[in-house]
């Protein structure tokens, strides 16, 4: 069975550690990498796809260090970078065939695969259109198609849903569930709902460190009893905003209803929320970095 293992992976830029002794083991399945902007997700992914050398630690693919595998490792890789570039004068078709030649695919196979992938991502009708005419969502879909060209065993997707509208995001999630059967899919995002419904396991990365990992259920269990609903006046709400991470706020009959994250009840009449969401988990861990206070 395929396996990707990172051991004490570290990347430093000067004195700053972008990724700090991160270790994990991945077997086939979908994994979400959650973290605020600047938490080190992209750096970690770039090391995993061998475009960035770690300062310390090692990455193993099926128990072999990836730098020793070289092209053999890149052969099983599918990668969609964040804000990936494209050649304006290329059509979607050209772009996929160019990527296929980079991946060393045979011409005939590449054409057949490109056609089927364009169909899969809903770009078959626009295959001859220049990429510069594409919307952000269409470009992202072209990017997803190129990542799948070589039928990768390891699919690394950095913020794949950025720029997609809700309908496209749902479509993307379904597509990912479809193709992920015997693959390792690592998906980074700070959009919680993207991973909530499809990820088998979620990694939480904060300031370069892996602070928690587990299934959605186990992560939810960790915040159970820490999510509260508080009904208060607007003035009281302002005070609570300054003291706690607030996941939600709505106005109701002249009062303010808040969803507050706290170890202890934030007010005497706060009611515990029985069904926390992954968004609560995210805010619990990253509230400060998202501009919230805890």
């Amino acid at each position: 069975m395929i396996q990707l293992r990172a051991e004490s992976l570290t990347k430093t830029y000067g004195a700053k550690a972008a990724v700090d002794h991160v270790s994990f083991t991945l077997s086939p399945g979908i994994y979400g990498l959650l973290g605020a902007n600047g938490s080190g997700k992209t750096t970690l992914m770039r090391m995993l796809v061998s475009v960035l050398r770690p300062t310390g630690g090692q990455i193993f693919w099926c128990d072999q260090e990836i730098s020793t595998l070289g092209a053999q490792y890149r052969d099983v890789l599918g990668y969609l970078p964040q804000n990936f570039g494209y050649y304006k004068e290329f059509s979607a078709w050209d772009f996929l065939l160019y990527m296929a030649s980079l991946k060393g695919l045979d011409g005939k196979y590449a054409k057949a695969k490109a056609a089927s992938l364009l169909e899969l991502v809903g770009l078959a009708d626009e295959r001859k259109a220049k990429l510069r005419t594409f919307s952000g969502g269409m470009l992202q879909r072209a990017g997803i198609a190129q990542a799948l060209l070589n039928d990768p065993k390891l699919l690394v997707l950095d913020e794949p849903t950025a720029g997609l509208d809700p309908k496209e995001r749902v479509r993307f999630r379904n597509l990912l569930s479809d193709i992920a059967k015997d693959k390792i899919v690592l998906l980074s995002t700070h959009i919680v709902s993207d991973v909530e419904s499809i990820a088998d396991d979620i990694f939480l990365l904060k300031r370069g460190k892996l602070i928690d990992e587990g299934s959605v259920e186990s992560l939810l269990a960790a915040v159970m009893g820490k999510v509260w609903q508080v009904t208060c006046t607007p003035d009281e709400a302002e005070g609570l905003f300054n003291l706690y991470a607030v996941a939600n706020m709505r106005h109701e009959n002249g009062h303010v209803v808040l969803r507050v994250l706290s170890e202890t009840p934030p007010t005497p009449d706060a009611e515990p929320v029985r069904t926390p969401t992954l968004e609560d988990v995210y805010l619990w861990h990253f509230g400060e970095e998202s501009g919230e206070t805890k």
Partner: peptide, 13 residues
């Protein structure tokens, strides 16, 4: 244009 990451992660990149 940010294509380098895609290229370097490909087999013949």
């Amino acid at each position: 244009c940010g294509m380098d990451a895609l290229q370097f992660s490909a087999r013949f990149g």
